[in-house]
Design a protein around this nucleic acid. Sequence first.
DNA 1: GCATAGCCTACCAAGTCTGTGGACTACTTA
DNA 2: TAAGTAGTCCACAGACTTGGTAGGCTATGC
Lengths: 135, 135
Amino acid sequence: MLSKKSQYAFKALTYLSEKFNEGPVLISEIAAKKKIPIKFLESILLELKKADILDSKKGKGGGYFLKQRPEKVKVATVIRLINGPIAMLPCVSLYFYERCKNCNEKHCGLHDMMIEVRDATLGIVENRTLKDLLV
Amino acid sequence: MLSKKSQYAFKALTYLSEKFNEGPVLISEIAAKKKIPIKFLESILLELKKADILDSKKGKGGGYFLKQRPEKVKVATVIRLINGPIAMLPCVSLYFYERCKNCNEKHCGLHDMMIEVRDATLGIVENRTLKDLLV
DNA sequence: GCATAGCCTACCAAGTCTGTGGACTACTTA
DNA sequence: TAAGTAGTCCACAGACTTGGTAGGCTATGC
């Protein structure tokens, strides 16, 4: 399951995608429109900024805005950043790989199956962007 | 990600699948062979028994054993029982559904996408059983 | 130089995950 | 029927994660 934090991140990013090229948007505006606890949202946006997805401006007329065009930001990137691994097992994860003790990956049915699940999921989330989330 | 508990559950079930029709297997034997903390394993097996996947016998010559044939136990069932929802969002889950506030499910890009992910995943785990985990 | 608005640090309550310990109960065998 | 075996149940506990809150600091614009 995606954490609430991830869901908030997607809501905020969707909102910022709609407002793309309209200048900085206040944290408070996003929080109000998307009903997200403001201080929690603040930390999420900061994380997205550090990952180069968002940029911000301080002071009057400031706020947050997308650093890249919505169609350049992959859903998979956001999930990995805020939620963590997409795969169901560490020994099957591409970005968070950890070797599996007591399961030689060559002969493990669960392993093989989870690779299939991973690839099926990646086939979707690697090929969608923020733009695809707008309806 | 699957919890360690889930991974232990699959290891134990795989072992019991191999020993299907050979009579009860001791918790301690499973724990030793699969390197699972014995008391933790105990609670997992009990949970699987309460879900009618395993059965047990007390006293000498006792132990745990599969209640149904390995090919009758779906991987999806075990994941839902031990790990929880398979879907990435509550508003998209079949067995753990919860309505999504602030996201009318008719017009939510994230929602639609996560339905695709869910179906892709279910397409795999609903059609595999313990038997498929044996190599 | 003052108001604005993001930045940063610290903290916290609740819940989940991964276990451990110990007493109790049911069953088998002698 | 007593002894020993093996699952059942209950309580707890430490580490980590989740979902937040509070408040001061810093940069910006007018």
